[in-house]
Write a protein that binds this DNA or RNA. Structure first.
Length: 137
DNA sequence: GCCAACGTTGGC
DNA sequence: GCCAACGTTGGC
């Protein structure tokens, strides 16, 4: 069981839409590092749903419901996608500023590589953020 | 709106 | 294979 973080601009696709849709495919990723992270995902893995740009906070949790497979929006055939299902919102969204203020979270991929749209999360980071978000890990 | 980080492209 | 130019992401 691994943990991840997936970014979305709320103006494009928000947590509210994610929760309404129940599940969605994470298409459109065109970065190899992000794609490799999705490749490593297994059904049942969980990911934080992060609002980038406008919001800058973790809003909810999704679960991987289908492993990496080809992305029909990529005509080159190089990139794939996973399918994720909304699990639950955080009781209290966790802002990027709060994450940066926590010494034990300073090494998060989210902080260190701000442009990476799909990044790994360690078990310790997962637990700490769930606690900050007011939910059970 | 600005800019840092970083990926990609293309000339050589 | 190197590197300058350029485009994009995303925080501030």
């Amino acid at each position: 069981m691994a943990y991840w973080l997936m970014k979305s601009e709320p103006a494009v696709y928000s947590w509210e839409q994610m929760a309404g849709d129940k599940k969605t495919v994470w298409s459109g990723v065109r970065n190899h590092q992000a794609a490799n992270n999705m490749k490593a995902m297994k059904p049942g893995d969980r990911a934080f749903f992060y609002h980038s740009n406008d919001g800058r906070e973790i809003a909810g949790i999704v679960k991987v419901s289908r492993p990496y497979h080809s992305d029909p929006t990529d005509t080159s055939g190089k990139f794939g996608m996973v399918e994720v299902t909304a699990e639950k919102p955080l009781k209290k969204p966790v802002a990027l500023a709060e994450i940066k203020a926590q010494p034990q979270l300073r090494n998060m991929a989210l902080v260190r590589q701000s442009r990476l749209s799909v990044s790994p999360v360690t078990a310790a980071e997962w637990v700490a953020i769930c606690k900050m978000g007011g939910i059970q890990p």
